[in-house]
Design a binder for these strands. Structure first.
Lengths: 125, 125, 125, 125
DNA sequence: GTGGTCTAGACCACT
DNA sequence: GTGGTCTAGACCACG
């Protein structure tokens, strides 16, 4: 997991998003055990309490669940993951369209530019 | 002109980008006189020197030119503007594709989602 | 480094030229660390900000580069230095020819006067 | 006559040099009547007293002479003019050589660069 | 310590 | 009034 922060958004919110992105992108697989709070906090360079808060929030959202004594796990409810993934993708699409429209591009032109970019590779890392 | 800053990037760099966006998006038209340094600075809530630095940089890039005593003007070299616009759009496209690929979407799916969003309006601002 | 200014040209521009001359003439060698902004400014008797501006401009031109925390260095791109040196020499030649032509001297006479001046030394500094 | 000043050297000294250059370059011909002090002063945009001082100095040097009632004239002593011309040219040569040497060029290279510049035209204005 | 950024306020040249 | 330059002094990030 790679961590990076900016100073505008509360750190715990950024943690939530980054872990959520890890789950949604498949880097953290459904049912997989995730690292202990203290370890993740150390890795991300934040206070364990902050990381704890983020993970509790993710638990409330249904992305992870914890099992007393054995650790914390990514949900294996594919529906939740896929729903979040779709929402995130939709947000990207909206941002993209919004920006391009501000520049004066039409949908046709956007599609054309998208098509002009050749596929890099068709396997996943 | 609408101003907004984050605390990560130097203010003058954000000023450059925002003014450039204004020009490239057509909000500031080619040849048009832009507000005086002191006025723009006041409007953006920054020190006149900071705004001055940004505008000088934009001048070096060829987006504006200044006439001692009479003011500062957007370039009327359409090629420069169009070039920057294309570069900016390309950057948006790349960011979009990159993010969507990280989520595991294919080009086909991206295009589909783009097409699914209905056109807001088909005139130009 | 020897500093001298006239009151017609902006100080920062004169600083640029003098540092550039130092690099191009070999007084400041490729890759060499140059004095800290504050020190150079004190030595030249100008405000640190003014010296900073000059050095940033030189950085933009590729003559120096800076490393946060450790200092500023002359470029080791010999091509840039040699290019600037050639351009400067060409400017000298042009000025010389222009002045002499205004006085009514022919190329032949110029060459003769040049040849008449005996070489001071034939080693390099 | 074209006038231009910088703010470092006393104006009267700059006037002397510029008039002397006019004479030496042949723009003001030997024996020719030159404009009245008041007119030259007006043309150059300086105080008549300053111009007067410059011309008196030129008179002392032998470049001009005045005739009560009929005006001021360029000397027709060719020797004086040619001497000054040679001195001026020599100064140009010395400056040129000095600058080029500082850059590390040899006499041979200077001569080569001089020869590389093709003659613009071979008549005089 | 280094370079980088920002603010405040002054003065100049142009028109 | 405009833009352009300069100074003074502050604070930050990096190492």
């Amino acid at each position: 997991m790679v961590w990076h922060f900016n100073s505008d958004t509360p750190i715990y919110a950024q943690l939530i998003n980054q872990v959520k992105f890890g789950i949604v992108s498949g880097e953290l697989k459904p049912g997989e055990r995730i690292a202990a709070v203290r370890d993740m906090a150390a890795e991300a360079g934040v206070n364990p309490n902050t990381m704890q808060r983020a993970l509790q929030e993710l638990e409330r959202m249904g992305f992870v669940y914890s099992q007393r004594g054995s650790g914390r796990f990514v949900t294996d409810d594919i529906a939740i993951i896929d729903g979040a993934k779709a929402a995130l993708a939709q947000a990207y699409v909206n941002t993209f369209i919004g920006s391009m429209e501000l520049l004066g591009y039409s949908r046709k032109e956007m599609t054309a530019m998208l098509a002009a970019e050749k596929e890099e590779n068709n396997g996943n890392t």
